[in-house]
Design a protein around this nucleic acid. Structure first.
Lengths: 154, 154
DNA sequence: ATATCTGCAAATAATTTGCAGAATG
DNA sequence: CATTCTGCAAATTATTTGCAGATAT
């Protein structure tokens, strides 16, 4: 629950500006489907696929296309983050802490169990890579894969 | 060209067992399309999409489906490595050094230029993550994104 | 009112699969 | 000659898009 508690304990857990307000600020509308999507993401701690979100909401309540469109918007507004687990399906997670949301996952290649990981690629090294190649605005995507304790028994 | 020269200089650049032999060893056949695919990958230093491989070979020389199937086989045999740049398209690179092939990329988000990166996620930290969560056979996928020198000028 | 959404259906795009015939070892 | 491959066409899957009507502000 209290992820990354040991890191940056000084930064206040800012979900300060509520999502509704941020949408309004960009003249975006607060609609039923969006409320539902955000509610689902708030309940789930792990990245969800569009299809999973759709199922949680109730297939008849909202069209798939609407979810796709909403996720694009929410991603652009940095309300959600998109993750790729290497299986060609996008997954989305709610950004919970504006200040320091960036994190990674450890995924079981057997049962697909997902664990949130706090460890990150060393900043200093990343800066070195950026400098060394003259790149700016450097970011990274990092995910871990392995076999979880449960699946090891089998 | 001589990538990772500074790392593991003791390990011999082993492309020791030729690919043809490795295929034969698994009772796989050496066919025209496979020869062509490998030839293309040998020329290109960066990960290629199936479509790019198809174009390099000459669209009429080989069916797309055949390339898809071959890439699956080659990946399973660890003759090629699959990379995901987060755009839902698989990319493949020839494994050049059996011993220490693992590496990452730095991709320009503007022009898609790709640079091979030697720096890797610290092994020790990865082990710690594995232990901490009871996971076995841990691996990771890591790619960097930024704006290349050329695109910064614009 | 008016810009922003939504559902629905049709369009893309990447990838997979079935099958009968072709090629390799 | 038996196994493994290949081309072709059809099927799947994820995602995108056009459009006309619905909704939020």
């Amino acid at each position: 629950m209290k992820r990354r508690l040991h890191q940056h304990p000084h930064k206040k857990s800012a979900e300060a500006v509520p999502i509704a307000q941020r949408l309004r600020a960009e003249s975006r509308k607060i609609t039923g489907p969006r409320r539902a999507i955000i509610a689902v993401l708030e309940k789930e701690a792990h990245p969800l696929t569009i299809r999973e979100i759709h199922e949680c909401i109730g297939k008849s309540e909202c069209d798939l296309a609407t979810i796709y469109r909403s996720m694009h918007l929410l991603e652009k507004m940095r309300i959600v983050t998109r993750f790729d687990f290497g299986d060609a399906v996008a997954r989305y997670e709610l950004v919970r802490d504006q200040e320091d949301e960036h994190h990674h996952h450890l995924i079981c290649t057997d049962c697909a169990k997902v664990v949130e990981i706090d460890e990150c690629f060393p900043e200093e090294l990343e800066r070195k890579i950026a400098m060394g190649n003259g790149f700016a605005d450097i970011r990274h995507k990092l995910e871990f894969f392995g076999v979880c304790p449960n699946c090891q028994e089998k």
